Computed example of a mutant assay.
Amino acid sequence: MSLVAVLLVSCSALGDAPTRATESPVATAQPTALPTAKPQRIPQGLVASGTFHSTDGTTTGAVDVVVNGHVAELELRDLVSTHERLGVRAPLRDSEGDPCVDSHAFAFTDIVAGTPTDPLIMPLSLGRGDPTFISEIALTTMTQADGSSHCINLVVARAPLVWTFGPLRPYLDTLVDDGIRGGASGEVVFDATGRPVTYTVAPNDLLPEVAGRFGITVDDVFYLNPARGPSPQDPMLYVGEVLNLNFRER
C-alpha cells in the first residue's frame, strides 16, 4: 500500500495576516487541576460505513472505514461511475452544502472507477487518534480550467459516515470555565446548560494557560480542534482565533 495522502489546507485570505498572541511573560493564576481520565482507545476493525449518493446519478457505491493498528483504511465497495478518474476526500469541516472540496480536507490518492484498488490509508494521528469528526467521504472530479466553475474539485457523490463508537474523550463534555487568568483572558461562549463551547483568543494569550483555564491539556485542545489552521497542532495562538470547546462539534 504505497498510496500517498496529503492534507489540504486553505490559503490565507487576502488582507492582513492574523496577529499572533504575544509570547511575553504574564502573571499566571494558579493552574487548574488537569483531568486524570485518559482517552479511550479506538476499536480495531470496521468502525464506520457509508453509502455514496449522487445528485446527478453518475456515481454509486459504498465505503467502509477499517482500523488496522495505527491507521484507518478506506475500503471502497461496488463503485460504479461515469467519471473515469475520481478524487477521494475526507472533509475536515462540515461541507454538506458546498459543491466543492478544495480545502480543509484529507486527500487520498485518486482512483480509477471500475478498477480494483487497495485500501486508502489515513493515519490516526489525524484527529489525535479519533477520526469521528469526519462526517463523510466525498468523491470528486477535476473541473475544466475555463472559468466555467469556481471549483477545482467538484463533488460528484457523498457518503455520510455512520460510526460504531462515540468520541474517545467523553470527559471533555464537562468543561468548566475557571475565569480570566494571565495568558487566558479571551471571551467564552456558553451553551444553554452553562458549558463553555467556544473561546476567542485575546492578546497575550498562551495555549497552556488557555487549556488550564478549562482544566484540560494542550493535547485536548488539539483534539477538540482537528481542522484548526494553519496546522491543527500549531502551538501559537492568533488574536481573534476561535477555539472549539464542544467535543460534539469537533
Rank of each mutant, 00 (worst) to 15 (best):
218 V>I: 13
137 I>D: 11
175 L>M: 08
92 L>Q: 09
30 Q>N: 04
192 A>F: 01
182 G>H: 03
144 Q>D: 06
231 S>R: 11
100 C>F: 02
221 V>M: 10
47 V>W: 09
105 A>L: 07
222 F>D: 15
81 S>V: 02
112 V>E: 15
86 L>D: 02
227 A>G: 04
92 L>M: 13
207 L>A: 05
229 G>K: 15
46 L>V: 05
230 P>D: 00
159 A>C: 11
20 R>G: 14
126 L>E: 14
145 A>M: 13
117 T>Q: 15
177 D>I: 02
90 A>Y: 14
161 L>E: 10
171 Y>V: 10
228 R>Q: 04
22 T>W: 02
20 R>T: 15
13 A>N: 15
128 R>M: 14
51 T>D: 07
47 V>D: 09
93 R>D: 02
94 D>L: 05
38 K>H: 07
77 R>Q: 15
229 G>F: 14
161 L>N: 11
68 N>P: 00
247 F>S: 14
47 V>P: 05
48 A>S: 08
59 T>G: 00
171 Y>R: 07
3 L>S: 15
219 D>M: 04
139 L>P: 03
221 V>L: 14
208 P>M: 10
240 G>W: 08
189 V>W: 03
110 D>F: 11
100 C>I: 09
173 D>I: 02
132 T>L: 13
119 P>T: 08
201 V>A: 03
209 E>G: 10
94 D>F: 04
62 A>L: 12
87 G>K: 01
241 E>T: 09
93 R>C: 10
130 D>F: 07
115 T>C: 05
119 P>E: 07
185 S>K: 08
35 P>K: 09
100 C>G: 00
22 T>E: 09
208 P>R: 03
176 V>H: 15
85 R>A: 11
163 W>Q: 00
153 N>T: 08
75 E>D: 09
58 T>R: 07
32 T>N: 12
120 L>V: 07
221 V>C: 01
111 I>E: 08
238 Y>H: 09
80 V>N: 14
165 F>S: 11
247 F>R: 15
212 G>Q: 10
165 F>L: 14
122 M>D: 12
120 L>H: 06
148 S>D: 08
36 T>W: 12
57 G>K: 13
63 V>P: 01
22 T>H: 07
115 T>R: 14
112 V>K: 15
248 R>F: 03
240 G>V: 11
108 F>V: 01
220 D>K: 10
106 F>C: 08
174 T>C: 07
52 F>I: 03
146 D>G: 05
26 V>M: 13
29 A>V: 01
44 Q>L: 06
53 H>C: 08
126 L>A: 12
216 I>T: 10
213 R>P: 06
239 V>E: 01
128 R>S: 13
211 A>Q: 01
106 F>Q: 07
201 V>M: 01
158 R>C: 09
235 P>H: 02
195 R>Q: 06
231 S>L: 12
194 G>W: 11
184 A>H: 07
183 G>Q: 06
17 A>C: 13
108 F>W: 11
102 D>E: 09
50 G>I: 00
168 L>P: 02
38 K>G: 00
17 A>Y: 14
149 S>D: 12
91 P>Y: 07
140 T>K: 08
172 L>E: 02
